[in-house]
Amino acid sequence: MADRTRLVGGAFQSLCILACVLIILMLAVILGDIVVHGLGTVTFSFLTKAPETGMTGGGIFPAIFGTFALVVLMTIAVIPLGVATAIYMHEYAPKRSRVVQMVRLAIQNLAGVPAIVFGLFGLGFFIEFIGRGMDRVFYGGELVYGQPAIVWAALTMALLTMPTVVVATEEALRAIPQSYREVAYSLGATRWQMIRCVVLPQAIGGILTGGILAVSRGSGEVAPVMFTGAAYFLPELPARLNSQFMELGYHVYVMTTQSPDVEATKPILYATVLVLLALTFLLNFSAIMIRAQIRKRLRHGR
C-alpha cells in the first residue's frame, strides 16, 4: 500500500518535472537555433547599413531606427497615461469604489484584446477618423495625416501596452508604506504635492519596469502596426510624424513570407530575428531585475 502510494506520487512528481523540462527545452531549442544561425551575420555593418539588392544583402539599420522611433513615441504617450491611471486607482479613488472596479476591468480586458483588433482600431479610429478629420479641418482635404503614419502606429501601440504600465506602477505603489503618505499629509502637503514628492519618487522603479516591459512588447508586436504605418521597404528614415517607417518585426514577417529567394535571404533573416530577440530579452531581463528589487522591498520594507 505504502509502496503504491510512493510509486504514484513519484510518477506524478516526475510528470510535473517533465512538463517544466519540456517548456524549458522548447525555449532552449528556439533560442539555440536562432543564435547558432544568426550570430555569424550580425556585424557592425549589418546593424548600420540599409537593405540592398532586394533584401538579400546589406543591413537592417532603417528597421532598427524605425522600431526605436516607434517605441519612443509610444513611450511618450503610454507612460503618463499608464502612471496616471495607476495613481488614480491607488491614490485618488476610494478603494472599493465602482469606478475603480470599472477601470480595473477595462484595463484587464484591454490586455486581452487581440493585437490584430488593435490594428483594425488604429486604422478605423486614428487614420480614418482622427487623421482624415485633421486633414479636412487643417489641410483642406489634402492627404497628410489620413494615411498610415508612425504617429498612429505609436498611439495604437500605446493603447496595447497601457495595461503593462498600469500593472507595474500599481505594484510599486502598493509597496510604498502608508506611513510615508501620512507624514506628507501631516506636514500640510496637498494630495498632488504628496504624490509628486513622496509617491512618484518612491514608485520610480515600478514605473521604469512598466515602461521597459511596454517597450519590449511594443518593439516585438507586428499585427498592430501592419496597417497603421509599417512599410515593406523605405529608402528614407522616418523624419516626420506622418512618415511611414520600417519595423524589425514587420521586416522579419515580410522577409519570411514574401522573399523572392528564401535561401539567399536566410542568413540576413536569422540575423534580424536574433537582433529582435536580443533586444526584447535585454529589455525583459532588466525589467525582471528591477522588479525583483521592488518585490524584495515589498517583503522586507513594511
Binding site: I23, L27, V222
Partner: peptide, 25 residues
C-alpha cells in the same frame, strides 16, 4: 528560480519570432 524566469522569457518572445521559427524550422 529557473522555471519562473524561463516562462517570463517565453512570454517575452515576440510572436513573429515564434512564427518565423515554426515556418522555417
Amino acid at each position: 528560480e529557473t522555471v519562473k524566469p524561463a516562462i517570463e522569457l517565453l512570454a517575452g518572445i515576440p510572436s513573429v519570432v515564434v512564427g518565423f521559427f515554426c515556418l522555417m524550422v
